[in-house]
């Protein structure tokens, strides 16, 4: 996972708790890396360890925390790569080009980034079917990211998702 996600996670913890909480998480996790820079790739396990430590220390429910983190992360990612998102005027168009254009560009910015795979199928102007394929299995994080996307475009969103073997199928409605 790219360092930028670790940086966003650190901001998320500090915003919801404080600097001391992040120090505690780093210390209790006993991970080798404690300094993360956005362009560098880090082992996914480090992120998993930090997340688990945070959940334990702060007694947080994993699903809700991931959704919340996803929503927070989108605003940060959109700000960081504003040139990629500001050319879209609605969330469905962006999701349609997520894999073909946006993730290609992301991989140029973050060399070696392992972006998840998304297959988007527009139903109509408000409804979209999105298939998420990733070995990381983080559907709750994706759910949070979609909420963040709706926030960015000032839309209301309702969604549900279901697991289909190793994939996750999201049914999304933006209003």
């Amino acid at each position: 996972m790219k360092g930028i996600m670790f940086n966003i996670f650190e901001s998320f913890i500090i915003k919801n708790f404080n600097d001391e909480a992040w120090e505690e998480i780093l210390e209790d996790s006993c991970v080798d890396e404690t300094v993360f820079i956005s362009p560098r790739s880090y082992d996914d396990n480090i992120f998993a360890t930090l997340l688990n430590t945070a959940l334990q220390l702060k007694q947080l429910p994993i699903e809700k925390t991931l959704v919340s983190f996803g929503r927070f992360a989108f605003s940060k990612l959109a700000k960081h790569s504003h040139h990629l998102v500001e050319k879209y005027d609605n969330p469905i168009s962006l999701l349609e080009e997520l894999d073909g254009i946006i993730h290609v560009e992301v991989r140029k910015i973050f060399k070696g980034a392992e972006t998840p795979k998304f297959i988007a199928k527009r139903i109509d102007d408000e409804n979209l079917e999105l298939t998420y394929i990733s070995k990381r299995n983080l559907p709750y994080l994706v759910e949070g990211l979609i909420y963040g996307l709706a926030d960015y475009f000032g839309k209301d969103v309702s969604l549900k998702w279901e697991q289909d073997l190793e994939n996750y199928k999201f049914h999304i409605t933006f209003k």
Partner: peptide, 14 residues
């Protein structure tokens, strides 16, 4: 102090 040390290290890495 820890935060500053990490930021310094991050800058060097960057």
């Amino acid at each position: 102090k820890k935060k500053l040390d990490r930021e310094k290290e991050a800058r060097l890495l960057l």
